[in-house]
Amino acid sequence: MKKLIALVLASLVVLTFAAPAMADELPGGKEVTDEFKLAFIPMSTAGQVTSICQLAADDIMNSYDNCKIEFFDAGFDPNTQITLINECITQGYDCIVLECADSTAVGPVIQEAEQEGVAVITFNLNCDAVHTMFVKCDSYSGGWAAAEAMMGILEGKGDILLLDVPAPQAVTTTFCAAFEDYVYENCPDANILEYINLTGNAQEDAYNAMRDLLTKYDHIDGVYCPDDNYALGVYQAVQEAGRGEEGIVIWGNDITPGGIDAIRSGKITGSCWSDRYSALHEAFQFGVYCAQLGLNSVTAGYTKTPVVYADFVAITPDNLEEMVPLTRWDKVG
């Protein structure tokens, strides 16, 4: 009997010491005290929106002392993005949050990363290969919301121009496709004059394109651009062509501080906004969770990538002031 009691007591002592250690170790993953390395590889870090992304990353790093998030710039080039992903795998990153520069090109290396135990979470733009999660800022819903609002102002009719992102990037977004779909389905009296891909991402590129289009078309009712920067370039061209009095409706996207000011001052009619901060915060948060649990599409046996949706909301002068705090631009200056 004494021996049995001694054995039970001894077992209790062992368990008492072992329990904290066991609690610290999560099934299949790292210990919670280990450092977690996350990589964020957007198409480019050059845009203003990067500061919102940085805000989300900072908040995550403030919440988890042992979490480090590094930003990498792919410069809109899928090949550079492949190099960076390979680099992250080699450097032992636990999770990669990725905005795909090309849905096909990065597929094989994403699969490789997942096979090597790195969780890949795509953000905003998807990839064909099965991976851990896709947080979708749905560009289709963005184009649809813009069309709905813009065509509402134009009472469902008019001549519209679509100035899309450069062709290589247009592969990954469906803003203009959604816009066209809305117009074809709901506005039989509207006419899409032309769809063009800009040659670059700068305001200057939109300005140059619009300057030429203004000489080509005598009558334009609206211009949709999936970027506030482009919308400002369009506004500049319209003013310089002396056609500011025609009341051309100019619509942007992905609201920026410049876009907010432009809507306030009436330079552009509206824009769209998707809560990029929350979407990315969610992606990072899930990345930490995956790293802790050693979870990814391979270990979980996914046959399809799970998707989380973040919709776009149209911003007009009517709802601008109540939307501005939600954009968090005030927090990043």
Binding site: N79, I82, D102, T104, A105, P168, V171
Partner: peptide
């Protein structure tokens, strides 16, 4: 890359 894109050769 199991596909092509406009950036090949950029």
């Amino acid at each position: 890359q199991t596909g092509t894109n406009q950036n090949v050769g950029n």
